[in-house]
Amino acid sequence: MSLTGSLPLDLPPPDPRQRLRARGAAANPAGRFEPYARLVESDGWEIAEEEKLLRTELCVERPKSIITRNTSPDVPFDRSVNPYRGCEHGCIYCYARPTHGYLGLSAGLDFETKIIARPEAPELLARELSKKGYACAPIAIGTATDPYQPAEAAQGIVRGLLQVLSDFNHPVCLTTRGAGVMRDMDLLADMAARNLVHLGVSLTTLDEDLARKMEPRAPSPQTRLRMIRAAARAGVPVRVMAAPIIPGLTDHALEAILTEARRAGARAAEMIALRLPNEVAPLFADWLARHYPLRAEKVLGAIAAFRSGKLNDPRFGSRMEGEGTEAELLARRFEVSCRRLSLARYLPPLDVTRFAVPPRPGEQLELF
């Protein structure tokens, strides 16, 4: 049976009034919590409407708290901060796309064109870190949407968060594929000298053409290698993240990705198999049908071979790596490459002993 035939691929057709430029999704299906879906239908009047370029919209959210807690056994952190919701990079495979459903928005074009910024995040973070009884542990930034997406150039929220963490001597694990991280390399270098920061750089492919189609507004693979070089020169410990590895599409390049990252200065490596939760599966299948129609069935079949015949398996323990013969072979290749390249699986632990709430202006400093 065709995998594409078994998917809920009743995505709405592209809006003919919209012109898309460098977008991952082509459709804007209703969120899974929405009772109604909207379709653009001809009214019978054959009057050509002006086609308008779909542009990115930036909205502001003012949450009451900024640290998110989790108890997932699949991730090595229990707290994170996300300065943005949605991501203009438009990576078609992004597992965070369904989070826009909680806002009444679509995981499709809405996710990459309706970006929500949290400009007060640094102040909120400082307030939460100052609470009595706060127990220090590394904070992860970039676990959902990319903190260095294009909006950050003007907003500067991540810079503010890093400054707060530096002032508190608080460790942070930063994950990105955005070139904006090079703007903050001075601050990251200073934190690295105190063993307070790890940087993870996502490198999905070395194929420039594939990257433009799959991650349309993210920096090119060569730019990401330059990011790794810049961080390594600044003394910032870097972990290359071959994530996600897409069976049948990018898995053949695993060794090349790790090799180039090691040459650029990465010290450790991580690999995560493609996840297609909720609305992401039909969006990804639609993208394959548009860009690689002759390979679509093969790629979907290869993904299903990692997931017990399904396109997604949300179970803890298997969702990041997959299971079965193909998943085991890929894991073995990863282990052999890391050993050959002297890439560690994990970066050394960050220092949590330096954490201290800095004195407010006018407060008496401690004598000892």
Results as ranks from 00 to 15, higher is better:
Phe355Pro: 06
Leu329Gln: 14
Arg97Ser: 13
Pro119Tyr: 09
Val201Tyr: 02
Asp286Phe: 01
Val299Trp: 03
Pro237Met: 02
Thr71Trp: 12
Val197Gly: 02
Glu297Pro: 02
Phe284Arg: 12
Tyr36Ser: 14
Gln18Glu: 15
Pro29Met: 10
Val75Lys: 06
Leu225Asp: 07
Ser318Trp: 03
Arg21Glu: 12
Ile92Pro: 01
Val75Pro: 03
Arg307Val: 03
Gly235Cys: 05
Met241Lys: 04
Tyr102Ile: 04
Lys310Pro: 02
Gln222Gly: 10
Gly265Asn: 05
Pro277Glu: 04
Arg32Thr: 10
Pro63His: 06
Gly322Cys: 04
Arg290Tyr: 03
Ile257Met: 02
Ala179Gly: 04
Glu255Arg: 10
Glu270Ile: 06
Thr99Ser: 15
Leu199Ser: 00
Val240His: 06
Ala231Thr: 07
Glu270Asn: 11
Pro147Tyr: 14
Val299Asn: 01
Phe368Met: 15
Arg315Asp: 05
Ala154Lys: 15
Arg229Cys: 04
Asp209Ser: 10
Asp209Phe: 04
Pro247Gln: 04
Ala232Asp: 00
Arg79Asp: 04
Pro16His: 13
His198Gly: 00
Met1Phe: 10
Arg333Asn: 00
Asp110Cys: 04
Ile67Glu: 00
Lys52Ile: 08
Phe355Gln: 11
Glu363Lys: 12
Val336His: 13
Pro293Asp: 08
Pro277Lys: 07
Val236Glu: 09
Pro14Met: 14
Leu341Met: 14
Pro16Arg: 13
Glu279Lys: 15
Pro219Leu: 03
Thr71Pro: 00
Leu210Gly: 00
Pro314Gln: 05
Arg340Thr: 12
Gly101Asn: 09
Cys87Asn: 13
Arg295Thr: 03
Pro150Ser: 12
Arg315Ala: 13
Gly104Thr: 08
Arg226Glu: 13
Thr145Pro: 08
Ile47Trp: 09
Tyr84Glu: 02
Ala179Leu: 03
Ala192His: 00
Lys132Met: 06
Ala151Tyr: 00
Arg275Asn: 03
Gln18Phe: 15
Asp351Arg: 15
Ser106Gly: 12
Pro8His: 15
Lys52Pro: 05
Arg69Tyr: 09
Tyr134Lys: 11
Met320Val: 06
Ala253Phe: 02
Gly317Ala: 04
Ala304Pro: 02
Pro221Ala: 05
